[in-house]
Amino acid sequence: MKRVLITGANRGLGLELTRQSLERGDMVFATSRRPEAATDLQHLATQYPGHLTLVQLDVTDEASIRAAHEAVKVVTSSLDLLINNAGIYPGMGPEDPENQRLGQFTADGALQVLRVNAVGPLLVAQAFLDLLRAGSKARILSLSSGQGSLEWKASGDPYHYSASKATLNMYMRALAAEIGQYGVLSILVDPGWVRTGMGGSAAAQDPAVAAKGILRLADQLHAEENGSFVTWQNQHVPW
């Protein structure tokens, strides 16, 4: 049984990762900004009593991150896997910035995306590092995107989302270089274009397939892969 923390677990790929982790017997800490409104997670909690803990967490709020750490620490003294899944794509969610097109940019809109998609995951990893260091072959998987690849970038829009994922890549690559000495590995994972509220109904990728591949990656990750950027099928993605 692994002890798994998943951010943004109330919907989309985060919810599917939570479901599959529970199905294989893991102890899961599922975080969201509003657990009281996360009806799908609450339903899973009734299905898997003692295996699922709902935790309030806003990755842009440092006090919320500290409180989430304390809440998890009450239940367990260690974590084996952190999945940084929480993220936004401007215009695809009710609380997201409305646009990221040339001629419509604002500093606040850009910074909001960067805080959620890049800075937040780094702060979460920092806060939970003590529990990860106490875990067994602990891993940090941060969900990035092919849009964050400088080599692959061939369009303008989306500006903020692409920049935020490239920033996330650098943060987690740097983190990997530092925490490898503790036996904790950090990699970036491109889950593909997934059919979720963020990805939209036209997306080709089934979230169940992507989630299965991501969890398989976590299980099979080796020390020499620390700091890598791969797809959910463990194929190299250029920086």
Rank of each mutant, 00 (worst) to 15 (best):
A127T: 12
F229L: 01
F229I: 03
A203S: 09
Y159R: 00
D96T: 13
L44Y: 06
E62N: 15
A110V: 09
H43T: 15
I65L: 10
G213F: 03
D26H: 12
A118E: 11
L79S: 10
D96L: 04
S162H: 02
E224W: 13
Q205W: 00
A210E: 07
P97K: 12
G91C: 08
N169P: 10
S201E: 15
S136F: 13
S78R: 14
W193P: 00
A204S: 15
S164A: 06
L122A: 14
R24D: 10
V119Y: 02
Y161P: 12
A218T: 03
S136K: 13
N84I: 12
L102S: 14
P35A: 07
G91E: 09
L81N: 06
E16L: 07
L150E: 05
A67T: 14
Q126P: 11
R216H: 13
W152H: 07
S78P: 00
L175I: 01
D80L: 00
M1T: 14
E95L: 10
P94V: 13
S228E: 11
E23W: 01
W232G: 04
L141H: 02
P35Q: 05
R66L: 14
L22M: 04
A163E: 13
H69K: 13
N234E: 12
L132G: 11
V189G: 06
F29W: 08
L111F: 15
S186N: 09
G146W: 01
D219F: 00
V59N: 13
S149I: 10
L175P: 03
A166F: 10
V59R: 05
S32A: 15
I179F: 04
V189W: 08
Y159M: 13
T7E: 01
A154V: 09
T167N: 01
V184P: 04
L141P: 03
D108A: 15
G12R: 06
G103Y: 07
K137V: 05
G213N: 05
A127I: 10
D219I: 00
I65P: 13
L131R: 02
R3W: 01
V194S: 05
G199L: 06
A203H: 04
L102H: 11
V4S: 05
M1Y: 12
V119T: 10
G146D: 11
Q220P: 00
S164C: 06
A174W: 06
E225Q: 15
